[in-house]
Computed example of a mutant assay.
Amino acid sequence: MTSLTRRDVLGLAAALLPIVACGKPSQIVEPPEVDAIPDDAVVITNDSVLVRVERIPALRSIDGAAVLLAARVIIIRTGTTTFRALSAECPHSGCGVSIIDTPRLICPCHGSEFDFSGNRLAGPAPTGLRMLRADFNEANGVLQVTRSIAPQLRPNSSRA
């Protein structure tokens, strides 16, 4: 009979957690990984967020996505020098959309799901995520996300 060490048990538990929590293995990235983003990668001001793209591993490849929960912003790399920015605030109850299950974004509070364009896919959210302005300066590798938006940039919104 082989005895298991504490490390073996913890490793097995970590491997099974996504299966138990979601019913299937997936590429879920939750806030603990978001916290791994270096402090010098993001600067938050009142109306914008500056992101040094090369400092965030998830943004190094096309279709890579990162949740910057402290800034309440989700960044998706759409091309070599193009990015999409979405508000991480769920339109249902204001929780932080913080789970990336490519190609979906999920709000952990009530299960609303969105695609990488911010469109609502499922759940109680009445609309999609707000799209934010994202300007990439290729010369210095900095993405500037403006957190105030124009009403026409709101995916899946109904006009009154």
Rank of each mutant, 00 (worst) to 15 (best):
T2D: 13
L4W: 13
R6C: 08
R7G: 04
D8S: 04
V9Q: 08
G11T: 15
A14P: 01
P18Y: 02
V20F: 05
C22G: 13
K24D: 13
P25M: 02
Q27L: 03
V29T: 11
P31C: 04
P32A: 07
V34T: 12
D35V: 13
D39R: 14
V42Q: 04
I44W: 05
I44L: 08
T45D: 14
D47V: 05
S48I: 05
V49I: 12
L50M: 07
R52D: 12
V53Q: 05
S61W: 00
D63M: 09
D63H: 09
A65T: 14
V67Y: 00
R72K: 15
I75H: 05
I76C: 11
T78M: 10
R84P: 08
A85Q: 10
A85E: 07
L86N: 08
A88C: 11
E89Y: 01
C90S: 10
C90V: 10
C95A: 15
V97N: 02
V97F: 01
D101P: 00
T102N: 08
R104Q: 14
I106T: 11
P108H: 03
C109T: 02
C109P: 02
G111V: 05
S112K: 09
E113S: 14
N119W: 00
R120W: 06
T127G: 00
L129F: 02
L132M: 10
A134Y: 07
N137F: 03
N137H: 12
L143V: 10
L143T: 08
V145G: 03
R147D: 11
I149R: 11
I149M: 09
P151L: 06
Q152P: 00
